[in-house]
Design a protein around this nucleic acid. Structure first.
Lengths: 347, 347
DNA sequence: CTGTTAGCGCTTTCAT
DNA sequence: ATGAAAGCGCTAACAG
């Protein structure tokens, strides 16, 4: 039943007006008589007209399309981020091109090029590991607004949206202090990463603010994995002096391991020893046991990224502006599994 | 530094040829002299030309864009599905519009309309619950190929890609039979759903094929949740006669609950009682304990969906063809946590 | 309020 | 092997 393409000219014909009048109707212009508008509208329905946005974009030299390039959609964190972006994008009457870079810089470049050819109004990128400022240069030069999410790229003249690791860690430790803990460890993570440095900074600041001396022996970097957590809690246990009664973990994988290690020593996480972990590895959330987590809200982050992008799109010019979101401290109950996580079935 | 838009006409000028020649070069036509091609190519680089695909699409009345509408990207199952689609789409030199319906039929319709206005060549939809055949009608009438993923819509004249629940359940039960189990339960799930009926059918077939009588008392429908699993195993335990030693669970949430229930009875899942679960609730995967799962591969499904779509796009006409993927039986080790699940961090 | 006239950047006959 | 001209479906002046 594929009807022939019906165009504005057909509408004009059917409604007995000219193309331009039809165009005005399409754009909801107030300059057309109601009765004319009605005639045109009816013609649209009668003929089964579908607007050709491509043609309009060409003429106007602009589009209502934004691109989003995700490094790893397989990671729910980024999937949620994309959902947040989608909300704002849809709300603004835009559509989004979506591309998955799979942490591959080469593929990412191809996607960027492709989206540029399609005339996107702006681009949100959660960059693949190893992305260089030069990869973004063409976009910047073309004046296309770009917002980076989660990871920033040194030297790139674009906005980025990062989680506030310092504030997050600080809040977490303050939470433990309020619980009465005096000697607190910081466990896991590779010491040479930016994220580690930031989280450790927040940890230190909270202690200092509380008038507690930072003990380097209570900071135990390991791999950011469950095994790393086991190792870290083991090493923390060997520290002499008053007992350490709580720890902030680099991420939740580490927190898992710490709990494992505690149980192996007949200690109950949450009861005998308080564990707080950054909730980076979202997938594992359901399995986090008696544990408090510091989490940023990826959907909200996606929304903020999109809002930032729109701000730039509407401002007309891309103006690099680094914004940091604040990691929210979420105290999640020990045993309850959030309903949202056990009801999501594919069927 | 936003350079003025450079067009084919600028290239033609710079290279000392006509627009049409440039166009031929852009399309990689073999009809141009190598030397000419080289001159044009250099001009492209010199002037920083970027191809305007929108204009080309308009002229050719076709696009290399496919749309994908996901009901819930927040569910890793569908996120993985999208990744699979993306692989094929990118491989085919297409780009994809992505929309998130959030299980909202209304929003889904808007997305469909929007994508149509943008002239997508085809559409992959994992439909929101409650989608009617009429929602897809406009697409079908316009001759736009549509492939449905995971859920089919009665009466819709479009292709769909479903998991083969019957074969999956059958394979799972056969696995248990090979392990030597003779009396096996089927636990959890709402008996009035299509998915339940299919999985129960596979369960029955496997038993019958093995010459074992199906006992209705061993089929225990409950809610498809962890609590449902606890309830189901409880009821299964009250069945008289020879002991039941294994069960196929409707999904992994149920399987969780079954394990809970077993432990409450001092039985060790995997050792004293074999548990197999359909792995629908992907997020919970890490937490599945001593347990075998029946899983379909969502990425592969996405790839198949995209391939099916391309087949239709290239065929020129949309031809409804229902295809079913086969649920793979994956025997996953009891205690090991797949590395992919503990290393995915957002940072 | 509505019609006329030009294009947007590209591809495509049809000549040459 | 390359050029000239027409036009995809729409919008944007500018008249009326």
């Amino acid at each position: 039943m594929a009807e022939k393409k019906v165009t504005v000219i057909d509408l004009a014909h059917a409604a007995g007006v000219s193309k331009s009048t039809v165009s005005l109707v399409l754009q909801g212009s107030p300059l057309v008589k109601d009765e004319t508008r009605a005639r045109v509208s009816r013609a649209m329905l009668d003929l089964g007209y579908v607007y050709n946005r491509g043609a309009a974009n060409l003429r106007q030299a602009k589009s209502k399309i934004v691109g989003i390039i995700v490094n790893d959609l397989t990671n729910s964190f980024f999937a949620e981020l994309a959902v947040g972006v989608d909300m704002i994008v849809q709300g603004g009457g835009y559509v989004q091109f979506m591309g998955h870079s799979a942490e591959d810089v080469q593929r990412q470049s191809e996607l960027i090029a492709s989206m540029r050819e399609h005339g996107v109004a702006g681009l949100i990128i959660s960059p693949a590991r190893g992305t260089q400022a030069s990869d973004l240069k063409p976009l910047v030069d073309a004046g296309i607004p770009v917002v980076l999410a989660m990871r920033s790229i040194p030297g790139a003249k674009v906005s980025s949206l990062l989680s506030d690791n310092v504030a997050g860690a600080k809040a977490a430790v303050q939470h433990l202090l309020e619980l009465g803990h005096r000697r607190i460890g910081f466990l896991g993570g590779f010491a040479d990463t930016q994220v580690f440095i930031e989280r450790a900074k927040g940890y230190r600041e909270a202690l200092v603010d509380a008038g507690i001396a930072v003990e380097e022996s209570c900071i135990v970097p390991t791999s950011a994995s469950r095994a790393g957590g086991v190792e870290a809690i083991g090493r923390l246990m060997t520290v002499g002096g008053e007992p350490v009664t709580a720890a902030l973990c680099f991420n939740d994988a580490v927190a898992f391991g710490v709990c494992d290690g505690l149980r192996a020593r007949k200690l109950e996480p949450g009861a005998d020893f308080s564990v707080v972990g950054f909730d980076d590895v979202i997938e594992a959330r359901t399995a986090v046991p008696a544990l408090t987590t510091v989490a940023i809200n990826p959907q909200r982050m996606g929304q903020q990224a999109a809002q930032l992008l729109f701000k730039q799109i509407n401002a007309g010019r891309a103006e690099a502006e680094a914004v940091r979101t604040t990691a929210r401290l979420v105290v999640r109950d020990s045993t309850a599994i959030p309903a949202t996580h056990i009801t999501r079935a594919a069927s």
